[in-house]
Amino acid sequence: MLSERNSYFNKWEKRVLPFLLLLPAFTLIIGIVAYPIIRAIYLSFHSFNPLKPSIFKFVGLENYIRVLNDPIFIIALKNSIIWIVGVVFFQFLGGLLGAIILKQNFKGRAFVRGLSLIPWVTPSVLIAIMWIWMLDGNYGIINDILLKLGLISRYIPWLAQKDTSLPAVMIADIWRGIPFFAIMLLAAMEAIPDELYEAARIDGANSFMIFLNITWPLILPTVIITTMLRIIWTANHMDLVLIMTDGGPGFSSLIIPLMSYHTAYKQLNFGYGSTIAILQGVFLVIIISLYLRLLRKGESIY
């Protein structure tokens, strides 16, 4: 009798419970985001100005054909790739170093760990205008310091030059995102049992060997997931670019979400704006699936 109930319960746990556990998440996601996303996809086949809701014209694939032939989209795509790869790579590198430093035992560690969040918690509007100010070509502190160190011979308008505007915004974004990586990787490192380290030390391994053979493989799943999430996040967050250069000068720091925003809200062409965003979404889906597939060989993620 008891065992019968147990087997029934076991079946329930195996077949129903996993879906039940997912239910709240899916209720939220489908209830809130599904409609807006479907609507965006729907809009991308139409010509639509939100000020004139009555004129809503089906244009078929016109927007998609147009976007693939749009030279500005190609520029934005190129910038987006530089933006995503550069930002995420350096955030990861900085975050890894930060996590290793914060993992050590030292006086005032809790305090330092708290302070490490600062770039992350500072509202982006302030980060943007502060970096604009620091990078200013006439009275910015960065120019002043570089000049005093003799690294430059005259003030450089970092945000006003074609070649430096995107890298300048990237530096601000890298600074902002490093603590995110640092905290995630720190958490992963803290989850590694001390016994493993002790055993390695007894075997006479040096710090570098320990990192390579114990820490790295064990934090790898977190590295992979965090990097992937950061790629998606970085691809779509344009707040710093918007305030710091608004894509300029010219199109030199224009990235795809910003182009989509300009098209939708400044040109009032929501159809085309949606198309641009959806195309980036499609690219992202492809890249992320490839990324996961490549990495799944080594470690099963899902």
């Binding site: 996601i29 985001v33 807006p36 996303i37 965006a40 998606i232 996040w233 691809a235 779509n236 344009m238 979400p257 989509s260 925003y261 939708a264 809200y265 704006g273 949606s274 965003a277 959806i278 980036q280 979404g281 992202l284 889906v285």
Partner: peptide, 10 residues
């Protein structure tokens, strides 16, 4: 997928 679009569009 819910995170793949710029928030402004939604």
């Amino acid at each position: 997928v819910t995170q793949m679009f710029p928030a402004i569009l939604l």
